[in-house]
Amino acid sequence: MRRAYTRCVRNARFEKRAQLQSMEPILIVMFLALIIGLLLLFSLRIGDREVEVTATKEASKQDLLLLGRIANLPELSCPKSESAKTYCIDMFKAEAFRQLMKDDDVARSSYYPLLGASEIAVEWIDMDSNGASINKSMVLYDNLNSSGVRPAVAYSTMYNPASPGAARMFATVTIYRRAG
């Protein structure tokens, strides 16, 4: 009787150990599959992240290019005789452009491919002959419905065709876009 009991227990212990040993291959394979799966998922995340970084860098670069193009548009640029090495915006054209963008929805939408969802403002410094100056500004285009904004800045000159003597004034052109 006792011998049978001992044998039973010994067999039971052997069974448990056998079960444990037989589980090992399953566990190994599951771990391997887990590692491979994690690596696949992380490679996806890396790919996504790269696209995001590239997209943001590209957006910055596009803003700078756009600022250059804005001042070269026939809608805004000084007559050819005035624009030298840098950008030059004709003040009277800028005012006409501003009015057009504000009052004419069709016209505003036709400039959307160029200007997009942004706000474009120009500030210029009106100096007098005594060395004093006033800062003036104008919003050329406003198609931005957003609170968080990311500005890009370029420097230019504002040309006043009505003022023959001191015609070109230092100007800052800022383009605001939605941040993120």
Partner: peptide, 23 residues
């Protein structure tokens, strides 16, 4: 690169700005 370009445009714009007292 971006900032250098911006500040270079600052200098170029300044150099072409008219000084009213000298015309």
């Amino acid at each position: 690169a971006k900032d250098t370009q911006t500040y270079t445009s600052f200098l170029t714009a300044l150099s072409e700005t008219d000084v009213p007292s000298c015309g």
